[in-house]
Simulated scan of single mutants.
Amino acid sequence: MEKLFDTWSIEREIVLVKVLKHPRHKVFAAWLDPAALAQWYGPAGLNIESHEADIREGGQWRFDMVGIFEGQEQRFPNLMRFLKIVPDELIVVDYGTPDPDDPDRFYMTMTFDEQTDGKTVLTMRQLHPSRQRRQAVVGFGAVEYGLQTLDGLATWLDS
C-alpha cells in the first residue's frame, strides 16, 4: 500500500470533491451498505444491478451499470475491490472491468473530512495506470460521470 501513495502523479490523477451537508459517519455508511450503494452509485440515467457485494476490506463489489441507449439496453460490467477501509475516514479500492488482470484498472481513494459545521468534504481521487488512460477516460466523460455519482449520493442522503 505504501508504494501506491508514492506514485501519485498529476498526469494520471482525477480529483473530484463534494461538500455534503451530512455528518461523515452518515456519508461513509452510504459507501458500505450494498443496498444503499446500488441506489445512488453511478452516472445519471444508469441503474446498478449488483451481482456480488462483499463490502469490507478484502471484499469486492461486482455490478453492472445498466441503461437504455438508442432503444437498446446496454450493460457496463464493473468490479471494485476494497483494499483498505478506515471507518469514517478512508476507502481505497481498485476498480475496473470484472477481469482482475484488466490493464486499465485504476485505484480510487475516498476521504471523508468532517467540518466544524457538521458537513463532510468527500474527496474522490482516481489514479489511472498511465497518462494516456487518464486522458481517455476524461475524454469519454469520467469527470462529469463522477460528479453525477457524487450528486446522486447527495440526493440519496437528503431523502
Rank of each mutant, 00 (worst) to 15 (best):
G96I: 10
A44R: 15
E2H: 13
G42K: 06
F28H: 04
D99N: 15
G58A: 08
F112A: 08
Q135T: 12
M80L: 13
N47T: 13
Q115M: 13
T155H: 13
Q135L: 15
N78G: 12
I91T: 06
I14R: 04
V86S: 02
R75C: 03
L157K: 05
E70G: 11
D33Y: 08
A136R: 06
L37E: 00
E11V: 00
E2T: 14
D113A: 13
M110P: 00
I48G: 04
V138G: 02
W31C: 10
P100K: 06
F82C: 03
V19P: 00
P77M: 09
V27M: 09
F112K: 08
A142I: 12
I48K: 04
T116C: 04
P129C: 06
T109S: 08
E52T: 12
P23R: 14
D113T: 13
L16Q: 14
F112E: 11
I14H: 05
E13R: 15
Q132Y: 05
N78F: 04
H25K: 12
T109A: 12
S159C: 05
M80T: 08
G67F: 06
W61E: 03
G45V: 11
F106A: 09
H25E: 14
R12I: 09
G71F: 07
K26A: 10
A142R: 02
P34G: 04
H22T: 09
A38I: 05
F69D: 08
K26E: 14
F140R: 02
D113H: 11
E52W: 00
K84R: 14
E73T: 15
L153N: 08
P129M: 03
A154K: 12
I85G: 05
I68P: 00
R131I: 02
A136Q: 14
T109E: 14
R81E: 13
D88Q: 14
A35F: 03
A30W: 08
V66L: 09
T7D: 10
V27C: 10
D94H: 01
K119I: 00
V92W: 03
D54V: 09
L157W: 03
A44W: 02
K26L: 13
D101H: 10
V15F: 04
F82I: 05
R12G: 07
F140N: 11
I10W: 05
E89M: 01
H128E: 01
E49V: 15
Q60E: 11
Y41N: 15
V17S: 12
G146T: 08
F63H: 13
I48M: 15
I14Y: 05
Y95G: 00
G146E: 04
L20M: 09
M80G: 01
Q60R: 15
R56I: 00
Q60G: 05
T123N: 06
D94W: 01
D102K: 07
P103M: 06
Y95M: 10
S50L: 12
E89I: 01
F106W: 10
E73K: 12
Q135I: 12
E89S: 11
G58S: 10
L147A: 07
A136D: 11
D113E: 15
D64E: 13
G45M: 10
L147G: 02
A30L: 09
V92L: 15
A30C: 07
I85T: 05
A30P: 06
N47I: 00
D113Y: 01
E2A: 14
A35L: 13
A44P: 00
D64R: 07
E57I: 00
R134N: 06
